[in-house]
Design a protein around this nucleic acid. Sequence first.
DNA 1: CTGTTAGCGCTTTCAG
DNA 2: CTGAAAGCGCTAACAG
Lengths: 333, 333
Amino acid sequence: MNLKEFAKALNLSASTVSRALNDSHEISTKTKLRVLELAKEMNFEPNPFASNLRRQKNKTIAVVVPDITNHFFAKVIEGIESIAQEKGYHILIYFTLDSYLKEVATLRLLSNGRVGGIILSLSAETNNYDHIRELKKRNIPFVFFDRVCEEIEAAKVTTDNKTAAHQATKYLLERGCRRIAFLNFSEFTATSIKRKIGYIDALTQNNIEVDTALILNCSTNKKENIEALTHLLTTQKDVDAIFASSENLSIISYQVCESLGINIPQQIKLIGFSNMTLAAHLNPSFTCITQPAFEIGNEAATILFKSIEKPHIDYSDTLIQLNSSLVKRNSTN
Amino acid sequence: MNLKEFAKALNLSASTVSRALNDSHEISTKTKLRVLELAKEMNFEPNPFASNLRRQKNKTIAVVVPDITNHFFAKVIEGIESIAQEKGYHILIYFTLDSYLKEVATLRLLSNGRVGGIILSLSAETNNYDHIRELKKRNIPFVFFDRVCEEIEAAKVTTDNKTAAHQATKYLLERGCRRIAFLNFSEFTATSIKRKIGYIDALTQNNIEVDTALILNCSTNKKENIEALTHLLTTQKDVDAIFASSENLSIISYQVCESLGINIPQQIKLIGFSNMTLAAHLNPSFTCITQPAFEIGNEAATILFKSIEKPHIDYSDTLIQLNSSLVKRNSTN
DNA sequence: CTGTTAGCGCTTTCAG
DNA sequence: CTGAAAGCGCTAACAG
């Protein structure tokens, strides 16, 4: 069933029907109603490919994230979807699994007009931004969230990572911790770097020497990270806290402590970025730094849709910073 | 940049270039190579809308799931994406948030040829399947996973829910529990019904009377569920175990026990369907029934792609059943 | 307010 | 092996 046939059933021309379906002001309310009614009855909707082709624009966006089993990213995507739904957008989803090459390949796939815009959170490996610059060159609107790229002028939605990490570190210091290990999820990503800076600043301000032996630069390989942390904890016997800069590293910290027979929080306290606040509930020793993921998704989608719909306006200096919060159990540790 | 311009740059006709890009056998290897090389260099890819319009088929699928913050669904989607990536498919994602109306609206949105096929897990509320039948009528290939619809003949990928629930109940019985509450996440969904049957069968086979006062039919409203479970636990003082039939209900069970000051697992043991095996690690009192989510995604995608690519073959009697597993901590409870 | 017509960018007969 | 031309289904400029 196509528009032409559908129009015939109404004894109208295709153009009139098309205009009616698109709620054009040059169609009488009466015919509009007639068209809309039959369309609903016959469940007719115009072919989106033809429509997109003709209009040269398109209500599909891509969301490119490292990993959707991370509760934070999952919730962000729900935030994006809720706005998309409302505005009639469709979402294509792609995972980089923190691989730079996969990120490059995915963006290449998206550079041919398949999508009207892109919402993007960088892979932990990404260290070169030419593939992002290519998006700008091709005039494809995009918005960064969480793992943003500092070097590129673009709309960005984040939390204040430095402050959050500072607070978390302070929280540990106040509880008497002095030898706090920091697990850095990426040497390149601004997000992780800022978290590290917050950690270092808090130590320095409290006159505690920063010991680089306690800073672990992790990779995207889980097994490697487990080995590295095991090594750290067995060589640095006096570590009294772990600060994990990502959800995955929080999980790993648990596993390693457990396998080494280290008691949390008696021997080592654990704090980490994670939106799986359940974790904090399941185990009182764990304190989560939680980001407002749903709102981040909302904001990112809102900006992207604006920049798709108003291409003449430049949104590339938009920076939205929301606040994260410390989720801890009542005074148990 | 379109095909015509690109062809001009090569001194070839559009048709030749098109055929070369699509690896047609009637093009010489030499020109193919020449075309492919320049295409890569100029990062040229044909407009997917024009291509889909002309071909009348399309390498985009939709994934419709209740909720992506559920670790199980997130992992299934990663399983789907890994196959999609490999086969050059794109994934549109939609969430029903367990709302029947949203499910209907979403499928309606997809019935106009936007996608080549659909992978679907039903909302907990869904009780009427006309919207699914509409897909069949329109010849849109689709595959159910996990929350399948028994009444409709279609390709399905699930786990053996009855057996898994039976084993879980047996596990509790072996540990001395006699008053096991069962939290049913949906009165309609086959998945939950089968879990309930497994639970009932295990009790019956062990000569334990099934007390309907211990079976709680939950809704999609978290707050209501918390209240209902609180009520159950305060009126049925002898409950010694909770069996939660979904991840969300497992989480709620924790929260309610905690707020009532009930010690898990001393007073009440907890077992539940959940793919967040982390939970089992964080708290030894929790035993997870974990489904092979990634593989379920793989299987569902594989079947869907087959039925898109070979429309003459009928896959609607395909049923793949994988095994779930009990994730428990070493003898701690 | 409605109809006619051209053309979006691609693929695919058909012709050579 | 390559090119010319038609047409997928829709929308928008133009005409009335």
